[in-house]
Each structure stands twice: as structure tokens, then as C-alpha cells.
Design a protein around this nucleic acid. Structure first.
Lengths: 106, 106
DNA sequence: ACAATACATAACTCAAAAGTTATGGATTGA
DNA sequence: TCAATCCATAACTTTTGAGTTATGTATTGT
């Protein structure tokens, strides 16, 4: 499980976060599909994906010469924990979110 | 209100996040108190505080020649919204999958 | 008034990382 | 088998930003 530190650093880059968001919204995507809309070169996208993969935010599935990436939002849970700790005020909103994440673990 | 982008970038630096965490835990602190435990120089701390202030994560209160900084965790709310959004996408798909599985049982 | 303290800003250095092009390995289709 | 495609890695360049030292601006105490 990645640390909150790694997760914040990972999602701190806007290009990388856009890739993660697209995987969340549009589901599984090949590297080429991601490259088409990322605004950067294919190697740049591959490097971002490697970073995301390193902290568990994405999963890759090889099919022939294509590699399909998908989001793993469960990996966000250390961030949820961090927020829970430092933003106690917003308890109610967190409780709903925690339920979601618990179901994700199963 | 700062964007999720700015917040992620702000908290992506570990020194800066340590400062924010200390303000959350220990309450109001002067720049000097923060410098003593930050492991970096006073100007570095001031710059981090400026970044945190720019996205609303801290508030400063001048008292004579001291400046007291305090955390404003409410500023984290765009991050909470972001998490709710992207964990929510996952939940939707989970629900759809559940529906599919239920129909398969029948 | 003057020295000392607290902080911010300026100017700069330097390292990390985001980007590039070039290339290699694996797979598919002809 | 051979050209084309998909992706990753290597090598390199460039930019960003975190750190430094030096200095400026208030404010306090004597």
C-alpha cells in the first residue's frame, strides 16, 4: 500500500491526474487512447502510467501488443485516511465515502 | 476556493505537508516555531507558508513582529469532493455489476 | 535612537522530474 | 518472413521548484 506521501506526489502532477481521472470515467484504455488526449508524447504517458502503477492507482493487462490500463481507486484509501485525520470537521461526508471504499475492498 | 489541482500540488511536497499537519495538530504557530522543527531554513518555511496561504490552507495573524499561522482544513473540501466523485464512479460500476450478477442468478 | 528580533522578499543555485527524440522488444497481419 | 503497430526504455534536454544566502522592512526592548 502506497503512503499518503506517494499518492499526493503522484496526483500532484496535472497531466498524470488527468490520465487517472480519464481511466476512472471512461474505464479501461490502451496507452495509445490515453496518448491521443493527453497532450504529451507516448513515452511521457508511459512514464506517468509507470508512476501511477507504482503506487497502485492503476492496473495493466496485456492483450497482444496492446496494454490496457484501468483505474484502481481503492488505492486512494490512504488519502481518505489522511483526510479523515486532518479534517475531522467533515465527518459526515467522509462516512459515506468510507462505506464506498469498504465495499471496494471486498 | 482553490482547485483540486492546486491542493494536490500544494500537499504533494512533504515538507509543506508536514507544516500543514503540524498546524492542524498543534494549533497556531509562529514562523519561528515552525522553522525549528521543519529541517529547512526560515525563508524556505516562509515560502511554503505562502503557497499554503495562496490556496487557503492556512491563515496568518500578525501580532507585533510575530506572525501566527493556523490551519484551515475547510480548504480541503475540493479534495474531498474530488474523492467523492472518483470513488463514486467506481461505486456506480460496482452497482451495475451487482445488477448484472443478480440478473444472472435469476 | 539604536540594537536586536521576526518575518518576507530577492537573487541565485541545484536537483528532481517532466518533457523530448531515438530505439528496442514483442506482437500482429499480410 | 517482413513490414507495421504498440508500448517501454534509454539517453538527453529543459523546466520547475525547493533549497540556499543575503538583504529589506517592521516591530520591540533598552
Amino acid at each position: 500500500m502506497a503512503s499518503a506521501n506517494e499518492l499526493f506526489a503522484s496526483l500532484g502532477d496535472s497531466t498524470r491526474r488527468a490520465i487517472f481521472e480519464r481511466l476512472c470515467r471512461a474505464g479501461e484504455q490502451t496507452v495509445w487512447m490515453l496518448t491521443e488526449q493527453a497532450g504529451v508524447s507516448q513515452p511521457a504517458v508511459s512514464k506517468h502510467l509507470a508512476v501511477l502503477k507504482h503506487c497502485g492507482l492503476v492496473h495493466d493487462r496485456r492483450r497482444g501488443r496492446e496494454v490496457h490500463y484501468s483505474a484502481k481507486p481503492q488505492a486512494l484509501s490512504p488519502l481518505i485516511d489522511w483526510m479523515n485525520l486532518y479534517a475531522g470537521f467533515w465527518r459526515e461526508r467522509f462516512d459515506r465515502l468510507e462505506d464506498v471504499l469498504k465495499r471496494m475492498d471486498q
